[in-house]
C-alpha cells in the first residue's frame, strides 16, 4: 500500500480505465435494460427514468425502489431505500485512499460520484499492480455511467414490448460480473476464515430480513472484523 511514486491523473490513465471497463458492459446489458423496463412499468416518463439513472447511478437501489413505486412518488421511502442498499459504498471508498489522499477537488469527489462495484474492483486490481494513475478509476466510471444511462433509456423504450421471466438466465450476467471479479480478490489461505464467516452471516441475514439489503454490509463487516481480530491475536 505504501508506494512512494507520486499519484497522477492523466488522459492516458482515463483511456486505459475506459478500455478496461468495456468488457463489463456485456454483463451489465440485461441489468440496465431491466431497470429501464421497471421504470416504465412504474409509470416514470423517459426523462424521469434517464434523470434517475444519471443522478442515482445505482442499479440495485433503483430496481428495489421502482418495484414498490406509487404515485405520488414515495420521497422518504425511496431516499431511505437508496441509503440502505448503497451503504456498502461507504466501505468501498476508503480502499481508494492510496490514490485520493494525494489528489484534490473534482478528481477526488467527482471520481467518487462514479464509484460502483465493478469499476471499484477494476481500480483495486490496478492499485495492487502498483498503478499510480487515478484517472483509471474515473475513465472506467465514465464508461459504466454512460452504459447505465443509455441502457435504462433503451429499456424504458422497450418496456411495453419486452418481458423476461424472473428466473431467466440472462439475469445471471450481473452476478457473473461479481463472481469473475471475486477470483482476483483471493489473497490466499488468510482469506478462508473471513470468507466463510462473511458467507454464513450474509446468508443468515438475507434469510432473516428478506427483501432488504442489510446482508451485504453485515457479511462484509463480520468477515473483515473476524480476519482483522485473528491477525491481531496472532501477532
Amino acid at each position: 500500500m505504501t508506494n512512494p511514486a507520486p499519484v497522477v491523473f492523466t488522459r492516458h490513465g482515463i483511456m486505459r480505465g475506459a478500455k478496461a471497463a468495456i468488457p463489463l458492459i456485456i454483463g451489465l446489458i440485461p441489468f440496465g435494460v431491466v431497470t429501464g423496463v421497471a421504470s416504465q412499468a412504474a409509470g416514470l416518463s423517459l426523462l424521469e427514468a434517464v434523470v434517475m439513472s444519471a443522478t442515482v447511478f445505482g442499479g440495485a437501489a433503483q430496481l428495489l425502489v421502482l418495484g414498490t413505486w406509487s404515485l405520488p412518488a414515495p420521497i422518504l421511502a425511496a431516499t431511505l431505500a437508496a441509503l440502505t442498499v448503497n451503504l456498502r459504498l461507504v466501505l468501498m471508498g476508503p480502499l481508494l485512499a492510496p490514490w485520493y489522499d494525494r489528489l484534490h477537488g473534482w478528481r477526488v469527489w467527482g471520481s467518487l460520484f462514479l464509484l460502483v462495484d465493478q469499476n471499484w474492483a477494476l481500480a483495486l486490481r490496478e492499485l495492487n499492480r502498483g498503478g499510480r494513475d487515478a484517472g483509471y478509476m474515473f475513465g472506467s466510471g465514465v464508461v459504466m455511467w454512460l452504459q447505465w444511462v443509455i441502457l435504462t433509456g433503451v429499456g424504458h423504450q422497450l418496456g411495453t414490448v419486452l418481458s423476461l421471466p424472473k428466473g431467466h438466465p440472462l439475469f445471471f450476467c450481473g452476478l457473473a460480473v461479481f463472481v469473475s471479479m471475486l477470483a482476483g480478490m483471493w489473497r490466499g489461505r488468510i482469506d478462508i476464515l473471513p470468507w466463510i464467516v462473511a458467507a454464513a452471516v450474509a446468508v443468515s441475514v438475507s434469510l432473516l430480513l428478506p427483501g432488504t439489503f442489510w446482508f451485504i454490509i453485515a457479511g462484509a463487516l463480520a468477515g473483515s472484523l473476524t480476519g482483522a481480530i485473528r491477525d491481531t491475536l496472532k501477532s
Binding site: L44, S45, L46, L47, E48, V51, M52, T55, V56, F57, G58, A61, Q62, V65, L71, P72, A73, P74, I75, L76, A78, T79, L80, A81, A82, L83, N86, L87, R88, L89, V90, L91, M92, G93, P94, L96, A97, Y100, V108, W109, L112, F113, L115
Partner: peptide
Amino acid sequence: MSMDPATLLAIIGMALATYACRAGGYW
C-alpha cells in the same frame, strides 16, 4: 416528456443518499 414534482424530489433524495455513501466513507 414530463417531470412530476414528487418524482423529481424522490430522485433527488435517492441521488443525495447514494452520493453520501459514495463520498462519505472516504471522507
